[in-house]
Nucleic acid binder design. Structure first.
Lengths: 308, 308
DNA sequence: TTGTATGCGTTATCAC
DNA sequence: GTGATAACGCATACAA
């Protein structure tokens, strides 16, 4: 019924009449707008989430304002202030660490917030994400099931409480669960999750541990960087070395060879997060956090080996 | 002075006071919001433009509402209506053909519009884009300067009045300008500009014209698809076949080999478009359309050949 | 300088 | 049912 905007007769006479959502917002105290904050809008990762969010939000009768925080606290706070003044009905906070400063600000806005692809132990905010440790376990376990035992890992930023340590933990757990010994020299920690990081760190890892037969990369970009670097070094994938990625971005299928990777349902995560936001907005209800399913999508960058 | 929101003293007492942009919008008749319409938000192409737009728009004190039209007229009209009701101050229309229906609606809104990566001969809307024909000429000419003469082309959707025919024209013009004969069997027209299109059409082109030494692909995705297909067919790039792309998306440097391509300054185009919008909003002035510079960025997918 | 009234377009309420 | 009116929060114009 709130979407019913049948204009009154008197307005109808004027053919140029257009309802004014601003005026409506003033009285209803609802802007029919939600804000979304990304550390980087232009990554494939963010784009996929945005796609899902945009679709769901518009289906539910609202619009989305995008904010690119560039991972800077100052910008984030500025955007939060802006979204506050614009009286957005809810906020989606993507892929970034929730700090006390942000949380206090968010709380003062008194509107629903949901975390996407991140979570917070410290603050009671609902989230939607994949279980990073579990997914990393699955990736590594897949490698082991394919006959590998000398498995390395290219990790991202270990400081990242979501995509850093947990994925390393998942890798280690899969190794030890399968009775394989964990060697620290088989793991290399990059500064980030980018192509360039993968490209630069792959040679270092291979120098440390030349006899690896498989690698788990903590992101598809890291994996592609590693593949490029391997190609340059004359190491053929997957014949000499298998690689599995993480994310299942569009680039994964464009790689040579097409990248086997563990998929996060990013678009769906965006959709689900938006829906959670709306049920919070509507009912004022507390919603449960959602752990989304991951799955390995098999392409051609991992080869089964029998002998060691 | 419009950005000066010094709260009055009486409000200051209440520490929780937050200015209300909605109320302000109602009286000033400005929402400090612009809308942007994409055929597909989640492509790297759109993301890059969005990045530039977001930055400029926020720097100029406004926010951006994103709309994903999925190239559907019905959705586009629905979004236009929504943006109208939200009283956005301006609209950015990206990468899509301007129809009479859209134009009439846009005109009725009576707010500035700028076209990004598209243009319209039929309607007087300012645009910012690269000169597609010229850029295609440059790409082909580059191939010729690198010693190639048997040059093929994988075109995108020929119906596309911006990225379709003009790029083919540019290719043809470079050929004839350099005294090379244009053979229709050296050109293949795909349905779109996607990786898959490139992957599927490459073999057909090679069947039609087996002795090509170089190919100009009308998009980076087409180029990567072609490279993947070539790799599968055992054709090595660039030793046996050179390929040049178009766009310079992030995927270009992730390719194997890294893709030589003609670059569009997408982020900058987004920024420029936003700035144009704001000068129109401020002055009500007419702005000039902008043809942005393109350039070929040399990587490793094109090899110089001397003999033919 | 400081304060107060009016209007922006809509919804909701209340009287009819 | 129909029609007038108050209120939302801010800006502006005008009075003190």
């Amino acid at each position: 019924m709130v979407f019913q905007k049948k204009p009154k007769k008197k307005y109808c006479k004027d053919l140029g009449y257009q309802p004014n959502a601003i005026a409506r917002g003033l009285v209803s105290n609802k802007s029919n707008t939600v804000g979304i904050l990304f550390p980087e809008v232009s990554s494939q990762f963010s784009s996929k989430i945005l796609r899902g969010v945009e679709e769901a939000v518009h289906d539910l009768g609202s619009s989305v304002i995008v904010c690119n925080t560039a991972s800077q606290g100052k910008r984030t706070m500025k955007y939060l202030q802006l979204l506050s003044e614009k009286r957005v009905d809810g906020i989606l906070f993507v892929s970034e660490k929730m700090t006390e400063e942000y949380y206090k600000k968010l709380k003062s806005l008194n509107i629903p917030v949901v975390l996407v692809s991140t979570e917070s132990y410290q603050f009671p905010l609902p989230f939607v994400k994949v279980d990073d440790k579990h997914a990393a376990f699955t990736a590594t376990d897949y490698l082991i099931k394919m006959g590998h035992s000398k498995i390395g890992m290219i990790g991202g930023n270990i400081q990242d409480p979501i995509a850093g340590q947990p994925r390393v933990d998942g890798y280690k757990q899969a190794m030890s669960y399968n009775g394989l010994t964990i060697k620290e020299e088989n793991i290399i920690h990059s500064h980030g999750f980018s192509f360039e990081d993968g490209y630069n760190h792959f040679p270092k890892l291979m120098e440390q541990s030349p006899d690896l037969t498989a690698i788990f990369a903590a992101s598809d970009e890291l994996a592609l960087g590693a593949i490029s670097s391997a190609h340059k070094a004359g190491i053929s994938i997957p014949e000499e070395l298998s690689i599995i990625g993480y994310d299942n971005l569009p680039i994964a299928e464009m790689a040579i060879p097409p990248l086997t990777t563990v998929a996060q349902p990013l678009e769906q995560m965006g959709r689900v997060a938006a829906e959670m936001l709306f049920t919070m907005m509507a009912d004022g209800a507390i919603v449960e956090s959602r752990i989304m399913p991951h799955s390995v999508v098999e392409r051609e960058s991992v080869k089964r080996i029998s002998e060691r």
